[in-house]
Design a protein around this nucleic acid. Structure first.
Length: 498
DNA sequence: AAAAAAC
């Protein structure tokens, strides 16, 4: 609570609150925008839209937090366009091509997606938008910028390039949006971000949106906002309640077999598999491909062309699995994605929320499976603390089948892989110990009984929350102790790490 | 422990 002390807060509504959803056409929006919204098939607003849009229209700075997949992009782009329409045809000379609104996103694919949305809502207006990001030719971007553009959507690095090349002028920017704001404000992005903000007028409207805001980032963010309003819907740092979350105790050798078995057992047509490293993702993708699954990889060591191809192939359903790093964790809107697997537990608990938020979007159901090894205890505890939910580890019984000998699939030239990951084939184990059903062991980690029923009950902290505001998590969950119990006591024989 | 974002 303390981090919000100075912020006026629009109270979060409870999930069960039976307020009738408000329609977009009750908003004081220009008919051109209402028409575009209607064209998109939207009739009623999501909670974050209903709360944030009127406040953005008032011209206030906003910090907006809402679950993944609940329409944050529309929540800022529609009212922003409305504000800009007040002087749709600026009297400023087009030769000076002043950018009036700037939207920053942490990945190229997300910037592209946000730009698509902005274009969609602005299509009946005169307002022009363009997206700029790295990995592609600068020339077409430069040409578009020089022709004049009112809304600029960008990733930080390429935008700085354009600024230095004097391809755009940002000293007349009236509106700034940080999408995935907590990521944009983290240590990796902050220097570039500050640099960019230094080119902007101090007087402007600033909007920060994300599904996750840590207390530290909330505090930091306030130094970039003027007299802001915090707009939160219920359960910040949560994904949609329609996502079934499972945590499965695994060994590194079991992980691929577990994923394949779950895909089969639950007849999952498509899934994203997240890994923590580019190299690991590249290898994992090749492994699934060898097993006959149609697989595409998405990570930062691929060319932008390959990245685009992978994502498009996945969106079009031409591949079953998208194996990706956290480049795909945030914001990407893939409709009706049934499942997400965390092959590796993410290093940041926030990224867990974003990763599994790729499924269960817009009210759809989804499955999120996280494979947990012994060394992940700390990370799981972090996730437990963030999502304020008790995490139970499921034991998983692999089918006692021998790994089928697979045929090498012919190389698909349309998915040329980067050569740096080519490795000689490892010898195939015909009786992989990893594929045997684990024998009962004395290790409590693997003897956790399979409990399917209890997990979906509202956790105790949720009930307590209704009665009193949460002061600290410690009274509701004991992550460290609980995970310690799950993973067993530390081996007394283990040598101390230096 | 990593990834992302510029050339």
């Amino acid at each position: 609570m303390s981090e919000n002390a100075s912020l006026p807060v629009v109270p979060a509504t409870a999930d069960a609150e039976p307020a009738p959803p408000a329609r977009f056409d009750t908003l004081p929006l220009d008919p051109k925008l209402l028409r575009a919204v209607a064209d998109s098939g939207y009739l009623t607003m999501t909670p974050i839209q209903a709360k944030a849009i009127p406040i953005v229209l008032e011209g206030r700075d906003v910090m907006g937090a809402a679950q993944t997949g609940t329409g944050k992009t529309a929540a800022f782009s529609i009212p922003l366009l409305q504000r800009m329409l007040k002087h749709e045809n600026p009297s400023v000379s087009p030769a000076r091509h002043p950018v009036r609104a700037l939207v920053l996103a942490p990945t190229r694919e997300l910037a592209d997606q946000v730009a698509d949305n902005v274009k969609k809502y602005a299509k009946h207006t005169q307002l022009r938008s363009v997206v700029v990001f790295g990995g592609v030719d600068m020339k077409p971007q430069t040409a578009a910028l020089k022709a004049g553009v009112e809304v600029l959507i960008a990733t930080p690095g390429r935008l700085l390039d354009h600024i230095e090349a004097k391809n755009c002028v940002l000293n007349q920017v009236e509106y700034v949006v940080l999408d995935e704001a907590d990521r944009m404000l983290d240590i990796g992005f902050l220097p570039d971000l500050q640099r960019i903000l230094s080119f902007l007028p101090k007087t402007r409207q600033t909007l920060l949106f994300s599904a996750t805001f840590s207390p530290e980032i909330k505090r930091l963010a306030q130094s970039y906002l003027q007299d802001p309003i915090l707009v939160e819907t219920a359960r910040p740092n949560q994904t949609a309640s329609t996502v079934e979350q499972r945590f499965i105790a695994a060994t590194d050798d079991d992980k691929r077999a577990i994923i394949k078995q779950i895909l089969k057992e639950r007849s999952i047509s498509q899934a994203i598999v997240f890994g923590n490293s580019k190299l690991g993702v590249a290898r994992l993708a090749r492994s699934f491909e060898r097993d006959g699954l149609r697989t595409a990889a998405l990570h930062g060591d691929k060319s932008q062309d390959e990245r685009l191809k992978s994502l498009d192939a996945f969106k079009r359903g031409e591949v079953d699995l998208l194996v990706a790093t956290d480049v795909a964790a945030r914001g990407l809107d893939i409709s009706n994605l049934p499942a997400v697997f965390n092959f590796d537990v993410p290093f940041n608990a926030e990224d867990y929320v974003h990763r599994i938020g790729r499924t269960g979007r817009a009210g759809a159901s989804g499955l999120a499976v996280t494979l947990v090894t012994k060394s992940d205890a700390r990370l799981v505890a972090d996730i437990e603390k963030l999502i304020k939910r008790k995490i139970d580890l499921d034991a998983f019984e692999l089918e006692n089948t021998e790994r089928p000998r697979f045929e090498r699939r012919p190389r698909d030239e349309s998915f040329e892989r980067s050569e740096r990951y080519e490795r000689p084939d490892r010898p195939v184990r015909t009786t992989s110990p990893a594929l045997r059903t684990p024998a009962p062991s004395a290790d409590p980690f693997f003897n956790k009984p399979y409990e399917a029923s209890a997990r979906d009950e509202p956790p105790a902290w949720e009930k307590a929350k209704a009665a009193a505001p949460i002061k600290g998590l410690s009274s509701y969950i004991k992550p460290k102790r609980q995970v310690a119990a799950l993973f067993g006591a530390k081996k007394p024989t283990a040598p101390a790490e230096g």
